[in-house]
Amino acid sequence: MNEYILQVKNLKTWFRLDTGTLKAVDDVTFSLKRNETIGIIGESGCGKSVTAHSILRTVQNPGKVLGGEILYDDGSRLADLVNYKPDSREMRHLRGREISMIFQEPMASLAPVYTIGAQMMEAVMVHQDKKDKMAAKDACMEMLRAVGMPDPEQKFNSYPHQMSGGQCQRAMIALAMVNRPRILIADEPTTALDVTVQAQITDLMKRFQKEYNMSIIYITHDMGVIAEMADTIAVMYLGRVVESGSVKAIFQNPLHPYTRGLLKSMPVLGNKTGEKLNAIEGNVPVPLDPPEECGFCSRCPNRTPECGAGIPSLKEVEPGHLVRCFHV
């Protein structure tokens, strides 16, 4: 058995638009160990969500996975998900059963016209060879209880609009967990929730990880959450992973100027010096037909003429710590 359950190598997901090619994901590389959590962090529009959808092959049109490898090890064999067609049997078999996903907006991610129970039942039954309603219902109720849904019997027959945001996110997690997946992709699962509910949800995910031996890909732009949740971190900028390594390496020895900027822009609890928070100058450019240069060079404090000359490669500076910068 492979040490890694999922390895993404040089993933490319591009959107061919009338105005040009949007390179939403352009060379993303990271690896996920069994029973561990990888945090993918970056600003809005850096390609985090597209990366997640590329793994599940649910990228919306006109986006296409055009290159790279997504190696998934189900314990018996290694499959490259890039080779499967998005609506193929193989992909559908994986979705929701081996690899599940929870989404940013829990309210909008539940279909408005079906009850929570109906949607969960469907998620279970679609992966059953022999359709067994009783067993499916039992599994759903058990999971609703496990996620701490108040009054699960009644919530089973409730519609999303009858529940609060936190309850909807619990329902989403129950929906994603009901088939006991090996990988859970959490795409900013707490962004739309208030802070107390956020903590409950992250605790829930950590508990499930232990109970069900699950690996998690946790996508967020919140450095604080990631420090708490993740074992390893991949920092993304403009469709590329610019730095990756263990939580310790990233937080204690950040090498890429972007990672440093991100860490400096984090508020520190109890900091009374009255200093302003550091902000990274400028905005993330839109990767529409991007030039062949380091993606961060337009905002980098340490830029040199060399930075515009090409795209730096991801170099291993110490074991497990990779950086994409000309100057390290």
Binding site: H53, L56, T58, Q60, D87, R92, H93, L94, R95, G96, R97, S100, M101, F103, Q104, E105, A108, S109, L110, A111, P112, V113, Q119, E122, A123, V126, H127, M172, L175
Partner: peptide
């Protein structure tokens, strides 16, 4: 078709056609 619940339903492993008729078309 652009709503998150469509993507979510797809991510659950439903067949594309069945998913389209059961979810967005229904709405």
């Amino acid at each position: 078709l652009k709503r998150p619940y469509v993507v979510a339903a797809r991510a659950r492993g439903l067949k594309e056609n069945k998913m389209i008729y059961r979810y967005p078309v229904r709405v």
